[in-house]
């Protein structure tokens, strides 16, 4: 039969890294490589149970395995968290549009992440780091609820600590060991914490809706043009291919035209932050 866009490819769980109390990174090995670009997502399914959209968090340069970082929040993610090494899942994708890296060339890239929203940004970071010469610098601002909620602790110090990378973390609530910034992520977007040539910069934001909303307001305040703010829109998705109607934002389908949108394209649509 012709290509069936509803069918998933089997993939086995190869590795499991517990990131926080409710976030785990799984390494999947699909039956055939699934090449993707940073920003694209996949639908991950538990056979006979359900499917949900996730963004690969590993480097797009690696094809044969794929990391997906998943927060346990409901029915499907609960089942995913119960997986063991060797179990089989389904992966459908890649879906959606990638980040337009061509437009990022020669610029300072500000990456703003909140909570599990760092997952797609990690794939983006790896993609940028692959061709670092093309970018002026990468500035990463990440907020988590508490030090215990910070994801990718294994990479942050090593892989991410490259020249031309300016990394700052913040937690809403610190503990005895925490020496970094305390406050919501917008506090590390202030002038004294973020020196950047805004005119030659793009900002890429992913996180919980409330965080995206306030980060966007802050970025606009700091002088970013709406067309230079890239937002990952988390909408209810079912088909992931622009047919089922679930993810509509105005004239767009988040699954097909997104999931990343520049703010100018969606700012006039009703209730984009919900």
């Amino acid at each position: 039969m012709k290509h069936n866009p509803y069918a998933a490819l089997p993939a086995t769980v190869e590795n499991i890294i517990v990131e926080t109390s409710n976030i785990t990174t799984f390494t999947f090995r699909p039956e055939e490589p699934i090449p993707f670009k940073a920003g694209q997502f996949v639908e991950l399914s538990i056979p006979g149970f359900g499917e949900a959209p996730f963004t690969p968090s590993s480097s797009p340069a690696v094809n044969d395995v794929m990391d997906i970082t998943i927060m346990r929040v409901g029915a499907v993610t609960e089942r995913i968290h119960a997986l063991s090494k060797g179990d089989t899942v389904g992966i459908r994708g890649p879906l959606g549009q990638p980040y337009p890296l061509d437009k990022f060339k020669g610029k300072e890239i500000l990456i703003v992440g909140g909570g599990v929203g760092l997952a797609p940004l990690r794939a983006l970071f790896f993609a940028l780091a692959e061709e670092m010469d093309h970018y002026k610098k990468i500035i990463l601002r990440y907020g988590a609820r508490s030090p215990g909620d910070i994801v990718y602790r294994n990479d942050v110090a090593t892989a991410w600590g490259k020249p031309k990378v300016d990394l700052m973390l913040s937690v809403d609530k610190g503990d005895e060991g925490w020496k970094g910034n305390i406050g919501v992520v917008t506090t590390i977007l202030e002038k004294n914490k973020l020196s950047i040539n805004i005119q030659n910069s793009v900002a890429v934001v992913c996180g919980p809706p409330i965080m995206m909303k306030f980060a966007t307001i802050k970025l606009l305040e700091r002088g970013y043009a709406p067309e230079n703010i890239y937002l990952s829109m988390e909408k209810n998705m079912s088909c992931g291919i622009g047919k089922c109607g679930h993810c509509r934002i105005g004239p767009y389908y988040a699954c097909k035209d997104g999931p990343v949108f520049t703010y100018d394209r969606i700012k006039d649509e009703p209730r984009i932050w919900d």
Binding site: Y6, P47, G48, G50, E51, K243, H246
Partner: peptide, 19 residues
């Protein structure tokens, strides 16, 4: 034209995907 892509199991236990 809206639909739900839903996963379930048939009476014989095989996984099934329906539109």
């Amino acid at each position: 034209h809206c639909f739900l892509l839903a996963d379930g199991r048939s009476a014989t236990g095989t996984s099934e995907r329906v539109k």
